[in-house]
């Protein structure tokens, strides 16, 4: 049992408060065309999604490529301007803030990127990469800062001497550790990890996942964990949101989602994972076709074109996400 669970047990009835609340978030990318490059349409990358993350918990977002999970993460960080909806972080609406206020707010949410090769500046020493976010916000004594950065490096499992090296001298897993140290530098409340382990080998992947879990307990971090690998998301998350074509189709606790997936898409997704056990070779639900283009999404339920249980109504009406069991939300006419 984790200390987190123990802490919760010790305080019965006390709900953890929400750290992040996303309400009806929409992010559209305009498509320009014609002679004057007018907007001729929109790619609805994120189309009206809502969820909340409690302090100290991990929310996982899964879905296939192009389903809008990365756009969701980036929009929450305000790296992309939302088209509509609200992002409430720690009680403050950060949807529309800009300038100094946004810069200040960003201290509290940081990101770990997918590609450990492209997300670190090859011209900077690792020490400078990690101290740069700190220099942005506070003045610190040079010696003190160096000590602090070195302690961060040790905390993420790198030697102190890494401070003086460059990113190319490290392996993929080590680079991802540098990226994590950089995200930790400002002591944030929320870390958005966008596919942090998909570029790594399994043995290294498990090291990074263990590290992220340890850090969460130590610094009481909240994670938004974005990945396409369901078993990884299951290992990491308390709640899981399944996305399809810019929509959240199911949100449930880790346990409920895997023991009893309700949405046909979630069922197919879970059944598609090859299990590392030859005795479990199962009859899989194999979805036909590909994800439709988000520039021209199907009417009604976005999944009806590939859904094995589609009915006539599915192509006409888009089902809203509703709570069908306590804490288990699903967007499907079947429920």
């Amino acid at each position: 049992m984790t200390t987190k669970e123990l802490a919760e047990k010790g305080k019965p009835g006390q709900e953890r408060e929400n750290l992040l609340e996303v309400k009806n978030l929409k992010t559209y990318y305009p498509i320009h065309g014609g002679f004057f490059k007018r907007v001729v349409g929109n790619v609805k990358a994120v189309d009206d999604i809502s969820f909340t993350i409690k302090k100290g918990e991990t929310m996982g977002l899964v879905g296939e490529s192009g389903c809008g999970k990365s756009t969701t993460g980036r929009t929450i960080l305000r790296l992309i301007k939302p088209t509509g909806g609200q992002i409430i972080f720690d009680g403050e609406d950060i949807t529309k803030i800009s300038g100094t206020r946004l810069r200040k707010a960003r201290q509290d949410f940081q990101m770990v990127f997918q590609d450990p090769y492209a997300s670190l500046n090859p011209m900077q020493m690792v020490g400078d990469i990690i101290s740069e976010p700190i220099k942005n916000f506070e003045r610190r004594d040079k010696k003190e800062l160096e000590e602090f950065v070195k302690s961060l490096l040790v905390r993420v499992g790198l030697p102190e001497t890494a401070y003086y090296k460059y990113a190319h001298e490290f392996s993929g897993g080590q680079r991802q550790r540098i990226g994590i140290a950089r995200a930790l530098a400002l002591n944030p409340k929320l870390i958005i990890a966008d596919e942090p382990v998909s570029a790594l080998d399994v043995s290294v992947q498990s090291q990074v996942l263990n590290l992220l879990k340890d850090l969460q307990e130590e610094f009481d971090l909240t994670y938004l964990f974005i990945a396409h690998d369901l078993s990884v998301v299951k290992h990491m998350s308390d709640t899981i949101g399944v996305m399809y074509l810019g929509n959240l189709v199911e949100v449930a606790s880790n346990k409920d989602l895997y023991s009893e997936p309700l949405h046909p898409y979630t069922q197919a997704l879970i059944s598609a994972i090859p299990e590392p056990d030859p005795k479990l070779r199962k009859e899989r639900i194999v979805l036909q076709g590909d994800v439709p283009s988000p520039a021209n999404p199907p009417t009604g339920c976005p999944f009806h074109t590939r859904c094995p249980m589609a009915q006539e109504i599915c192509s006409q009406e888009k089902p809203p996400l509703k709570e069908v069991r306590p804490g288990h939300h699903v967007a499907c006419v079947l429920y």
Partner: peptide, 15 residues
């Protein structure tokens, strides 16, 4: 080292 669907594990083996 691989997280598996049917089991709950707090920590994964590492190499």
């Amino acid at each position: 080292a691989i997280p598996k669907m049917e089991e709950e594990k707090e920590r994964l083996a590492t190499i």
